[in-house]
Deep mutational scan, measured.
Amino acid sequence: DETGKELVLVLYDYQEKSPREVTIKKGDILTLLNSTNKDWWKIEVNDRQGFVPAAYLKKLD
């Protein structure tokens, strides 16, 4: 059920640097789980959840 889920576009590649982070690729469109922290957003990638720098993402309307 995708209702109410926010999507984000990945602006730059990011390689995870800790187990709490996930790797993302430029151009991916992913589900945003939590954006309350202005610097690190929690997203879902391939059934994995983790954090990436918010500056690497853009919210889609």
Rank of each mutant, 00 (worst) to 15 (best):
N46P: 06
N34L: 08
G50R: 04
D61K: 12
V22I: 08
N34K: 07
P19R: 09
T3V: 13
G4W: 13
K5F: 13
E2P: 12
Q15W: 14
L32N: 01
T31R: 14
Y12S: 10
L33C: 07
L7I: 07
V45T: 13
V22K: 02
Y56A: 15
L33G: 01
R20H: 14
N34F: 07
K26Y: 05
W40C: 06
S35P: 06
T36R: 09
V52F: 01
G27P: 01
N34T: 07
E2G: 13
F51G: 01
T3L: 13
P53I: 02
T23M: 03
E44M: 11
A55D: 10
Y12R: 15
L60H: 05
L30H: 15
D1T: 14
R20C: 14
T23C: 04
K59I: 14
Q15L: 13
I43D: 00
Y56W: 06
N37Y: 08
E2H: 15
K17G: 08
D28C: 09
K59C: 07
R20W: 15
I43M: 01
S35M: 08
D13E: 05
W41G: 00
T23L: 02
R48A: 06
K25D: 03
Y12A: 14
E44Y: 06
K42E: 15
N46K: 12
Y56I: 12
I29R: 05
K42Y: 15
P19W: 07
N34G: 06
T36H: 12
T36Q: 13
V52Q: 00
D1F: 13
A55M: 11
G27C: 08
A54Q: 05
K5Q: 12
K26F: 05
N34W: 06
R48F: 06
V45K: 15
R20E: 11
T23K: 04
L11R: 05
D39T: 13
D61W: 08
A54V: 06
Q15C: 10
D13Q: 03
K26E: 07
D61I: 11
T31N: 10
N46H: 14
Y14C: 02
I29D: 00
D39A: 10
Q15D: 12
E16P: 10
P53S: 02
Q49W: 08
V22E: 01
K42T: 06
T3R: 12
L60D: 03
K26M: 08
